[in-house]
Structure formats: structure tokens, C-alpha cells
Design a protein around this nucleic acid. Sequence first.
RNA 1: GCGGAUGGCUGGGCGGUCGCUUCUUUGGGGGAAACCCCAAGGGGGAGGAAAGUCCGGACUCCACAUGAAACGGUGCCGGGUAACGCCCGGCGGGGGCAACCCCAGGGACAGCGCCACAGAGAACAGACUACCUCGCACUUGCGGGGAAAAGGUGAAACGGUGGAGUAAGAGCCCACCGCGGACGUGGCAACACGAACGGCACGGCAAGCCCCACCGGGAGCAAUGCCAAAUAGGGACCUCGUGCCGCUUGCGGCGGAUGACAUGCAUCCAGACGGUCCGGGUUGGCAGCUAGAGGCCUGUUGGUAACAGCAGGUUCAGAGGAAUGAUCGCUGCCCUUCUUCGGAGGGGUACAAAAUCCGGCUUAUAGGCCGUCCGCGCAU
Length: 131
Amino acid sequence: MTKIWTPRNRKGLLGFFVSDPDLKILKKRAAFVRTSFGKRHGTKGLHLQARHREDGTAHIGVGFTCSKKVGNAVARNRAKRRLREIARLGLSDIAKPGWDYVLVGRAGATATRPFDALQSDLARAIRAIHE
RNA sequence: GCGGAUGGCUGGGCGGUCGCUUCUUUGGGGGAAACCCCAAGGGGGAGGAAAGUCCGGACUCCACAUGAAACGGUGCCGGGUAACGCCCGGCGGGGGCAACCCCAGGGACAGCGCCACAGAGAACAGACUACCUCGCACUUGCGGGGAAAAGGUGAAACGGUGGAGUAAGAGCCCACCGCGGACGUGGCAACACGAACGGCACGGCAAGCCCCACCGGGAGCAAUGCCAAAUAGGGACCUCGUGCCGCUUGCGGCGGAUGACAUGCAUCCAGACGGUCCGGGUUGGCAGCUAGAGGCCUGUUGGUAACAGCAGGUUCAGAGGAAUGAUCGCUGCCCUUCUUCGGAGGGGUACAAAAUCCGGCUUAUAGGCCGUCCGCGCAU
């Protein structure tokens, strides 16, 4: 098991989850690659990849990816920050313990889609994966 | 007012709610300590290009006596600068009525090479048509000689105009212009102006090679230094009990060679599941890491200016799968639709995000603002 959580980032190097210590950020490339082999579901505003770690730990892992297809650095940053925000606001209520989730940005849509629609995209994708 | 030239600035604003990062204060907790964690309060938190990564430096490590060669770069002159291929001023050439703009702008008597097509001929000239003349034929032609002005080709054809001269002609000669140019004057210089004399010759390309002058050691913050953890396992050196075997359970024994042999002793060799030291990569952490040739403003001194000195004020982010935000409301600007002229609705609001740090260059950019100058028109 790759160590993805050090004492230093308990508060969250990517920036949140003070109130929820069971939510952890994926930082290693290997964790992203492993998750990409799991279940996938696409929506208008984002792609979701998810995988049960099966390592006995109960925390929820979450990562964010925006490839160059999304646009230049400004567009990628904006898409990633909106994904991070919807995860911060709603992920821990609907995700299952022991799973890793990777949210993938889509060109155009992730940055321009109305915020509430993006939030329901995430909820629908998680529901679809756990059916 | 219209058209144009040029220099500079700006890169939406206000307010809720919820967050991130960094510094700091206070309180609490953990630890031997370094320090770490939690909470609350306060402060800071993307750009003019942060971009392209094209130049120049700082810094770090490696290499290193010096020079030369090689390779790469720069290329009118002078100045500025830490430095530059940047900036400022000047010179030369070209464009524009002008403001102003553009130029890889050293050397072609050091040498080699190239000059397509067209054209007779493209480099110490040559003679297609045409010109003059002589001989033969005698009908346009053929052959010899003279000459290089005229035609045509080309980016470029070995000076131009006029006269004199001639069989026809020619710098063969003359005047003016052009060209080369001793020397003189001005200028730090590039260069400019004048010019004895020469006598028409010394074509272009150096962005083909080359020559000359000057500059340059290499790699880069994933540089580099330190710490911790776990581990496959490599190298060097050391050795006699704390190891192994046996049993009588506290005793005995335990590699080889040489010194003739045995024992003791000495020297040498070997030697681990032992000891000490060194090195390798992996993962994580800390440092480097942001205050410096610093930016901006004001005054002042020197300078045409770039810039430099002095004095005062002000201001400066430091992430690391990478913070600097998400969302909602009001509003500015532009376009547009409707209108009861009060307003209401719709759309748009660029380019592009620090990654060790500075100085430049180049490229992208919605909209807006300010200054200076030139030409034309009108008024006075």
C-alpha cells in the first residue's frame, strides 16, 4: 500500500476536510493509475473513476485530473478548482468508505456548466457506479 | 474637424457566504530535544506579458597552469550597464510632402567559388545584327581588315552629355558631370567638406566558403547540501573468542606453508553466519527559497540621452500532484431588442497563470485613458 497520507497533509495539502478526517487526497501517480483501472462513469460535466481499495482501511480517497485536452493552464486550473469545490461540499455524504475516487475534467463543460448541475453530475455518477 | 506619426498608462468595481496557503500573536496538547499538532485573532497571497524559453547575468556543482587550435557567437562609430545579440546618441544607405519609419551596415587588390533565364558576350572581355573599307562574284552574297558609337538581352554589358576628330569610329583629345584620390580642414570616432593629381581602370554575391577584430570552460535549483527509515547486497581492512565441536558441565580441542623433524616461537598466506569503515540506489523530510545589480515615487547633482550618484519616502507571494479560490447579489463599459421615454430584457467583457532569482528580446491581447508632433481644411 502506497503511503498517501503523511502527518503534514492531515489538514489536506489540496486544501480542505478539516471537519472530516476520513477524507484523504490522492497525491501519487500510482494511485491515479490504479484507480483508472476501476469503474468509470461519464456525465456532461465530468468523468468519474472509482475503485475499492480492498486494503482494510476505511477512509475515502479523492483525486483530480485535468489533461491538456481541457485547455491551457488557466482553463485547467479553473476546472480543477470547481471539481475540488463540489467534492468538498458533497462527496463525503454520498461516497462509500474504503474507495478511491478520481474526478476528471472535461473540455469546456467542467468550467462553464452551472454549479448546481455540476454537483448533481457528481451525485449521479457515484450512484451509477455503486449500483 | 479630418487623416497620420509617436511615447506612455490601464487590464473592471463593491459586498455577502464557504474555503486554501504562508507569516505572526495568544491559548491548549505532544515530545528528552529539534520541532510538530489543534483552536482563535491579525497581516501577506499571479502578470503585463507570469507565456515562448531566444539572449545576458547572479547562484551551485564539476573541470581547470597558461596560451593556441577547433567549435559557437557578435559585427558602422561612441556611450550606458553586473552583462548582453539589450538600451541611448551619432554616422551612412533607403522610403515618405512631413512628423517619422526601415536596414545581419567589417573586409571582394589574402585566396577559392558562384553569377540562373535571356543574350553574340557575365570578368585580366568579346563581336550576333548593324557601321566603314578592300578583294572576288556582280542580284540579295562570300572572304580579309578596321572600329566598338547604334540595336537587342539582362538584376548587372567595362562611365554620361556636348564638342572636336575620322573611311567609320573610340577618353584618342577637350569642357562639364560622375569615378578613384595624395593632402588639407572639422570631428574622440564612424564620417563629412574641400581638393592637387590620375585618366576610365578596380562589376556583383561574404545571408557559399573564407579573412579580420572582439567575446565564450561544462552542466544546471530535478543544481547542490543535510537528516531519517527500511532494505537487496557490493568493496576495503581487522581477527582467536563473546563462535563451533566433544563430553566428564568446566574442562579439552579447532586451517595451511616456511624455518630439517616434534613442541614452543617467528614470519607469510587463507578465513565468517564476527567486528569496523566506505559506497550504491529507493522512499520521505528539511535546507537552497525568496530583501535583490530590487521595484516604485519625490527632490537634487552630472549628462543631449540611455544612465549614474546622493537624500527622503514607500513596497515586496513563496506553492511543491503544485496555494493565490468557489459561489451568490449589485454594478461599470460595449452591442442589441422592446418602450407608456421613467425604464425593462438579452448577449459580450481579451490574452494568459509564478515554479531559484534578476536584466532584456520576441510573440498574444477585448475595451478604455493621457501626452507630444506632422499634413490638410476652417476661423482669427
